[in-house]
Design a binder for these strands. Structure first.
Lengths: 165, 165
DNA sequence: TATTGTTATACTCTATAACTATA
DNA sequence: TATAGTTATAGAGTATAACAATA
């Protein structure tokens, strides 16, 4: 069934450093999480790079495309990025004509971020690319493991914390 | 038993953005991984910060303490950091007297990194702090889930990829 | 000719505070 | 007085290339 062994051979042979994998660092869940994240992040950045995006700008675009009409404050909280960073990301996307700021009708301080037609097109391509990249990253896992991972991460991700990047 | 539902209520209530959690971004495993990583990384940095360390310098110290006598090239590969960054990390630890560079007897190009007595002491304290922090980060998970997560991450972390940190 | 460690540098990312306009 | 968005800036982190010593 599922691999519950914490030291399956495959897990120690990414590089020639089996010796170091046997240390306390190699047993540390936070270290493994960081490493897995670095790998998937690099793959995702490479995937959306072909569309002139990075993971962060892609995330903003995806939320703009969603139709939920998020404002900048909501984007900041959801992506755990400082409001000033959200400004820069939207500036860039807006300059490329992928999203638009729309003033909120009820509160003139608020900007709602929506996708343009071109933004939707670019997003569709980028989304397909990230899905291919993700499928590759997670190809070592069976469907059951992927569902498990997602469920566990959802629990963890719900905690208060820091930025995504 | 285990929570396999991908949209348990708890997972959507870290902030007030339930609306955005329902989008494709909120369903993306890589996004959840990044978020979980950001949270544990921030907690770990806070934990070792009291010892004048960051996660990266802590990792180098831990490997120096291990007794495996890693050289700089091995540290670079294992931590997936550029050799020049390893230099800076070791410089800092060496200046504080926590580690020592020892020339390899067989190859005079090579430096092996070993911990000093003080390095071992600092490490012991920092390790205890990170373990407390990790326990807190993962407190939402039962033992079974933690083992599962570790096993799955080990499989993922074995893939070729990018940096940690 | 290749490898280890080092230096230098430019670039990106991140964190912070101050400012404006609205409420 | 508080909030949404913006600007500016300094610091940390990252990536790259060139270099000396050694193999």
């Amino acid at each position: 069934m599922r691999n519950t062994s914490p030291s399956s051979p495959a897990a120690r042979q990414a590089d020639g450093n089996d010796r170091l994998w046997s240390t306390s660092v190699g047993e540390d869940t936070a270290f493994l999480l960081a490493r897995a994240n670095a790998i998937t992040l690099a793959a995702a950045n490479a995937a959306v790079g072909g569309f002139g995006l990075k993971v962060r700008s892609y995330s903003v675009l995806a939320l703009a495309v969603s139709g939920e009409r998020p404002n900048q404050r909501e984007l900041s909280e959801f992506l755990r990025l400082d409001p000033s960073q959200i400004v820069a990301l939207i500036d860039e996307l807006e300059k490329r004509g992928l999203v638009r700021r729309e003033p909120d009708v009820n509160d003139r301080r608020v900007n709602v971020v929506v996708a343009t037609d071109e933004g939707r097109e670019v997003y569709a391509g980028a989304r397909a690319a990230t899905e291919r990249a993700e499928a590759e990253c997670f190809s070592a896992l069976d469907d059951d493991d992927r569902d498990q991972l997602k469920a566990i991460l959802r629990t963890l991700a719900a905690a208060p914390g820091a930025s995504v990047g």
